[in-house]
Amino acid sequence: MRLLRELRILLPFIVLIALWWAIKVGAQVSDTMLVAPPAVWDAFVHLVTHGILAEYAASSLYLIGVAALISFGIGVPLGFAVGANRYAARALEPFLRFFQGISGIAWLPLAILWFGFTHTTTLVIVIYTLVVPIVFNTMVGVRAIPENYVLALQSLGAGRLRIVRDVYLPGALPSIVVGTRLGMGYGWRALIASEMLVRQGGLGDLIFGARTFNQIDRIMVGMIAIGCLYIVVDRLLVQPVESMTLARWGLLRQ
């Protein structure tokens, strides 16, 4: 049964690879546009055995990890402060919305002027990209908590800290997770784009560097690695937390 299920996930990819190969051979597409699947496999084996892929992937994962931690540290408390106070929310909401419209990558030229072609530049861009959705969604989550929850706890004698711990934090958690997922979607892309321009390692650097030498095989290995890593991070880290909180509390499709 398990095997059958896995086969059903793999089958579409097998069909896709067959299609890709058929186009490559049938239409005589030049190697500078598209390479055949075996060439990608060879490049994959080469990049893995020489430790190149691991090195570039590690750089990307390290940066996104650090950025996620910092963004969480900044975004969640800020989101709480804004969400729990209606004056702060009124003041900051349009401001945050505005900055949400300016993608992190748009600040990249300025960041390069300030920090040069360094990891700091990439880190700043990714943190900026991640922080805004996290703050925003934390704020939305806190504000969506029914006032009665707070009132009920007050009449049970709860103080401010207790209300934050027992009501605001768990109440806003699903929304924080949604914000984090969205932020990671934007952040991972900002990371790749920033790495392409900063050229200091990372999978973005790998695929953009391969472009310079028309190494289509390397580009495609890099793309597949980027996709797989994102799915692994999303499915293994973020989604379990999401389904645990949402399903357990019955907040999904009430």
């Binding site: 009132l151 007050q154 004698g157 768990p170 109440g171 907040l251």
Partner: peptide, 19 residues
């Protein structure tokens, strides 16, 4: 002066915590 634990409240809309 404010809410306190000497006066308990039961609301119409559910105010028990879903989590």
């Amino acid at each position: 002066k404010g809410p306190g634990r000497d006066r308990g409240v039961v609301f119409q809309e559910l105010a028990i915590l879903p989590w």
